[in-house]
Design a protein around this nucleic acid. Structure first.
Lengths: 163, 163
DNA sequence: CAGAGATAGTTTATTTTTGAACAATTCAGA
DNA sequence: TCTGAATTGTTCAAAAATAAACTATCTCTG
């Protein structure tokens, strides 16, 4: 019927006989394809919802770091500042996070979760983690841990043990 | 001066004291952050150029699979069909790939590289792979292999050994 | 302390991506 | 064979992401 024929299910596209030759050793490309696959699967599981996954991620990050500057959060999550502005405004309008301009640096904006925001996390947090893991259910627990270790290293974050 | 303060160099954003709590165990999120980091680094190394990386990737994939249907390639590379249409047209206009409608199925379009396309690959292929590896230079060779194995598995591709 | 330059965030124009509607086939079953 | 559904690809309008210009504030240096 439409352009993309797959009904947003969890099927295999099935590389079949394609094969990308040397391209398959490009970790950058593979990283991207894997990421898109993972998100496709996640969204298929997650379905429609009020809050976007990017918004929920920011909300959770804010709850974990109350008083964080919005630009710092943007950099950590690799969200562009101009997008973060819009995203945070949405969260504020929904009463999930509060923006506050600190007296000592009136250029900046720091964020904290509202009670409603905390409630939202309480309500949906567990589901997020469950679906995130399920989207990657082709990996064993050991492989899952390996993936987290590798991605941390790529992102330049310290290994879990050192924190 | 501008929104993004970093001069597109290879600096550490330096997660510093942030820490995302449980979110750091979301492999989906980590996968995304790692992918964006890797691409950021790749582009910083790669600089300006005639051909976009997505275009070059398609060109190489076509050269590896002459006669492949454009929709199949789109699915494998996780490119939307509507984007693939535009992308392939660009490659055709530059004389790098040829489009051909096979007689037995006149709905479809199959692709093959032109001589000029092959020449382009000859010219730039090595550089691509080098920079791709360099963008992930924080990984050891063993980790790099691990990453490729994991991403293949996520994408639903067979392990290298089985091919 | 004046002022140049840097930093934080927002706004706006542009580009890119997406999704839905569409046309042209092909397929499959009555 | 005929007809309704499915496949393949394109087009186009809407949504999202990006980059560049801009405002406000802060910092540092002479």
């Amino acid at each position: 019927m439409a352009g993309a024929r797959k009904p947003a299910a969890l099927e295999e596209p099935g590389l079949e006989q394609v094969g990308l030759g040397a391209l398959e050793h490009s970790a950058g490309l593979m990283l991207r394809i894997a990421q898109l696959t993972a998100f496709e699967r996640f969204f298929a599981l997650f379905g429609e919802s009020e809050i976007k996954i990017s918004e929920f991620t920011v909300l959770m990050a804010v709850a974990e770091n109350p008083g964080i500057r919005q630009g710092v959060l943007a950099d950590v999550l690799k969200i562009k500042w101009s997008n973060m502005t819009k995203l945070v405004r949405t969260l504020e309008e929904r009463g999930l996070v509060a923006r506050h301009v600190p007296r000592h640096d009136r250029r900046s904006v720091v964020l904290s979760p509202t009670d409603e925001g905390r409630r939202q996390i309480e309500k949906s947090g567990e589901k997020m983690y469950r679906l995130d893991r399920e989207a990657l259910s082709m990996l064993t627990d050991a492989e899952h841990d390996q993936l987290i270790a590798l991605t941390r290293k790529i992102a330049g974050w310290p290994p879990i043990s050192e924190r």
